[in-house]
């Protein structure tokens, strides 16, 4: 039997532990609308693709997958074509060296009936291109670990700051024009103290960027 005051103390500690386990972070989302948007949630699809033509713009694969999942979620969830399925079906036209960097280039590609038919089969209404990256901008502290037959352990404290910047360009595939852009900036500090066992308190910078970007793109497209 747990005494009521002890139960309250325990809850406070659990809440504190959860707060500490998530490092400090901040997210800023911006939107620029160029045209009105409309989508039939029953029949239209979207595809989310990462730019890969240059290391400076290359979005991580797990970020692209995360944004796609975010777009599928909620009551206004979109139908999202898996990026690998789309790129494989259109191989080799959406590879790093061939993917269209402009709408004019996409329009040229669509002059080939074989390509037009393949894209039509996905019922794609919007192509969402993502570029950007998450980088560790600063780190400090130190930790030393030892391992032996009798056991092992670590001692020290490490901390690092992550920053992420992503921009999504939303192409209207029916009208062949850019509907708008959504960008997100996120930063956060993570900590890892270690007394025998290292315990990471992670600022989920990339995850926060993914959620911010995904939610904003979804409302951008659905709410027109």
């Amino acid at each position: 039997m747990v005494r009521p005051e002890l139960n309250l103390d325990l809850r406070i500690y659990v809440v504190l532990a959860v707060v500490l386990l998530v490092g400090c972070s901040s997210v800023t989302v911006d939107e620029m609308r160029l045209t009105e948007t409309e989508i039939d949630l029953e029949s239209d699809t979207v595809v989310v693709l990462g730019r890969q033509h240059s290391p400076a713009y290359e979005a991580e694969g797990d970020l692209v997958s995360c944004v796609a999942s975010q777009l599928r979620s909620g009551s206004q969830g979109l139908s999202v074509v898996p990026d690998e399925e789309f790129v494989d079906a259109l191989y080799p036209w959406f590879e790093p060296r061939t993917a269209p960097l402009s709408l004019e280039r996409l329009e040229n590609l669509l002059d080939r009936p074989i390509l037009q038919n393949a894209i039509d089969s996905f019922a794609v209404r919007y192509i969402i291109w993502i570029e950007g990256a998450t980088e560790t901008t600063d780190s400090s502290g130190g930790m030393s670990c030892t391992i032996s037959a009798a056991g092992g352990g670590c001692l020290g404290m490490g901390m690092w700051e992550d920053e992420s910047t992503y921009e999504a360009s939303i192409w209207d595939f029916h009208e062949l024009q850019e509907a708008g852009r959504v960008s997100v900036d996120s930063r956060g500090t993570s900590y890892m103290p270690a007394v025998i066992i290292p315990i990471p308190f992670l600022a989920r910078v990339q995850t926060n960027s993914c959620r911010g970007l995904g939610d904003q793109i979804q409302s951008f497209i659905v709410e027109g």
Partner: peptide
């Protein structure tokens, strides 16, 4: 795999 796909891209096109 990306390098092989790049070879395939250049070869097909």
């Amino acid at each position: 795999v990306e390098a092989l796909r790049d070879i395939g891209t250049q070869l097909t096109l």
